Amino acid sequence: MSSPPRAAPPVPAPPALVEVSAAVRASWALDTCDDADVADWTPERPSRGQCGSTALVLHDLFGGELLLAEVWYPDGRLQGYHWWNRLPGGREVDLTADQFRTGETVQPPRAVARPDGPPRRCRDQYERLRARVLSRLAAG
């Protein structure tokens, strides 16, 4: 006599964005900052240099699209690049929008496909941030 088929284990619900946001913000530190922004990072502005890793962590958890835009200084020089997310359903989420100084202007974004494998830049920072965020979410 065969036993009845087992039900598949329940799929855990994805964490709420508010929980992820809090875990991400609590996990930012100098050692998760992009090397290009380390000199400008402070505990008072912890989002500085965190956009790339943060966008990847949110993409890991929610999917959607990665958005990329140039950032310009007031004098027209390129400051760098800014990353954020467009979640499934179209909502844009930018947890690091407050990192910019007065006059730094984020240009319109373009959606960018995420390459396979780990990031080429800031891999250690991404892995550190991801581990901290997942640990905080697991701890509740």
Results as ranks from 00 to 15, higher is better:
residue 52 G to T: 02
residue 87 L to I: 10
residue 84 W to G: 11
residue 49 G to D: 00
residue 120 R to N: 08
residue 79 Q to C: 09
residue 76 G to D: 10
residue 8 A to N: 11
residue 97 A to C: 09
residue 112 V to M: 13
residue 103 G to N: 11
residue 96 T to Q: 04
residue 76 G to P: 08
residue 125 Q to I: 10
residue 99 Q to P: 13
residue 54 T to Y: 01
residue 122 C to F: 04
residue 29 A to D: 14
residue 26 A to G: 13
residue 10 P to G: 14
residue 58 L to E: 07
residue 121 R to H: 08
residue 57 V to W: 06
residue 135 S to G: 09
residue 120 R to K: 10
residue 95 L to N: 06
residue 106 V to T: 11
residue 116 D to T: 12
residue 90 G to I: 14
residue 101 R to H: 12
residue 113 A to E: 15
residue 91 R to G: 12
residue 79 Q to Y: 08
residue 109 P to E: 09
residue 60 D to F: 06
residue 28 W to G: 00
residue 39 A to S: 07
residue 130 R to I: 01
residue 38 V to E: 05
residue 68 L to I: 07
residue 30 L to M: 07
residue 107 Q to P: 02
residue 8 A to T: 13
residue 40 D to A: 03
residue 34 D to C: 07
residue 51 C to S: 11
residue 25 R to F: 01
residue 131 A to H: 07
residue 73 Y to D: 05
residue 57 V to C: 06
residue 92 E to Q: 09
residue 73 Y to P: 00
residue 33 C to D: 05
residue 102 T to A: 12
residue 35 D to N: 13
residue 11 V to Y: 07
residue 22 A to C: 05
residue 30 L to G: 07
residue 140 G to W: 06
residue 138 A to S: 11
residue 48 R to D: 01
residue 117 G to N: 06
residue 59 H to T: 03
residue 15 P to Y: 08
residue 109 P to F: 08
residue 99 Q to D: 12
residue 3 S to P: 13
residue 110 R to I: 15
residue 131 A to Q: 15
residue 34 D to N: 07
residue 35 D to S: 12
residue 75 D to I: 03
residue 54 T to V: 05
residue 83 W to T: 14
residue 12 P to L: 12
residue 49 G to M: 01
residue 13 A to D: 08
residue 86 R to C: 10
residue 64 G to H: 00
residue 26 A to T: 09
residue 105 T to M: 12
residue 37 D to I: 02
residue 86 R to Q: 13
residue 117 G to E: 10
residue 110 R to D: 14
residue 40 D to R: 03
residue 105 T to L: 14
residue 110 R to L: 14
residue 68 L to A: 09
residue 105 T to D: 15
residue 106 V to C: 04
residue 28 W to F: 04
residue 121 R to C: 03
residue 109 P to W: 06
residue 99 Q to W: 14
residue 118 P to M: 13
residue 34 D to Q: 06
residue 70 E to S: 03
residue 17 L to I: 14
residue 106 V to M: 10
residue 39 A to Y: 02
residue 83 W to F: 13
residue 91 R to I: 09
residue 100 F to H: 14
residue 108 P to R: 12
residue 126 Y to P: 00
residue 75 D to R: 04
residue 71 V to P: 05
residue 51 C to G: 07
residue 88 P to I: 05
residue 110 R to P: 10
residue 100 F to S: 08
residue 120 R to P: 00
residue 17 L to T: 14
residue 9 P to F: 14
residue 64 G to L: 01
residue 89 G to Y: 02
residue 86 R to F: 02
residue 132 R to E: 00
residue 25 R to L: 09
residue 50 Q to T: 02
residue 33 C to N: 03
